[in-house]
């Protein structure tokens, strides 16, 4: 495992950086292109996106903390299995929590809550960061990544809901006569919207590289 070597060797990077990097520079969706499946599937409205993002962030933070605190206890050979077990546990908890909050929301998110288990973002943070860093740092990393994920999902969900349903968080934002772009809440719209955001990011990066 080498990816985080630099962070280990360098003089302790400021903890704000652990937090900030996930939001922007290493944004899990826009930069690392991780966890695409829930990103697309539940981002057809801002509220769904937000709920899914928060649920994922919660699982991410909790499993990062647990993995980090158990990092010296888990043998290398079974680490992946252990991580999956830990993640699955928190996902199950989140699943029940959401059901207890609102049946409708749970219905909207459907099986995608359970599918957080296989969100590569969580496993990759556990493997690449939490298993080698202190609890505090891991929590900050998870918080940053989690919020970055929420941010990305929100960006998607907002665009899709505004154009596709003329509303945001269920509140109508356009006059009655506005024609909704139904495609935005369809699967194809998900692909197009994500492509659009990635395009903006690429364009920004290319421009910056040129400047």
């Amino acid at each position: 495992m080498t990816p985080t070597k630099t962070t280990d060797l360098k003089a302790d990077p400021s903890s704000t950086d652990e937090f900030i990097k996930g939001l922007w520079r290493e944004n899990p969706v826009f930069v690392q292109v991780l966890g695409m499946c829930p990103t697309l599937a539940v981002s057809n409205s801002a509220i769904n996106a937000l709920a899914m993002g928060l649920a994922t962030a919660f699982v991410l933070i909790m499993s990062n903390v647990l993995v980090s605190s158990l990092r010296n206890f888990i043998p290398k050979q079974v680490r992946i299995a252990s991580y999956i077990l830990i993640i699955a546990t928190f996902v199950t908890m989140v699943d029940y929590a959401i059901q207890a909050i609102s049946v409708d929301l749970h219905k909207n998110l459907g099986a995608f809550i359970s599918l957080i288990v296989v969100n590569c973002l969580i496993l990759s943070r556990a493997e690449a960061f939490a298993s080698k860093n202190t609890i505090g740092k891991s929590a900050l990393d998870a918080l940053g990544m989690g919020l970055g994920f929420v941010f990305a999902l929100f960006c998607l969900g907002a665009v899709r809901e505004i154009l596709g349903n003329a509303s945001i968080f269920g509140i109508t934002v356009f006059p009655e006569s506005f024609q909704e772009w139904i495609i935005m809440i369809l699967p194809a719209g998900g692909f197009f919207t994500l492509a659009f955001w990635l395009f903006l990011f690429n364009n920004y990066k290319l421009k910056k590289a040129k400047a």
Partner: peptide, 10 residues
């Protein structure tokens, strides 16, 4: 196809 999906009624 985009228009069909976006504005199915029109």
């Amino acid at each position: 196809a985009f228009l069909q999906a976006a504005f199915p009624v029109a």
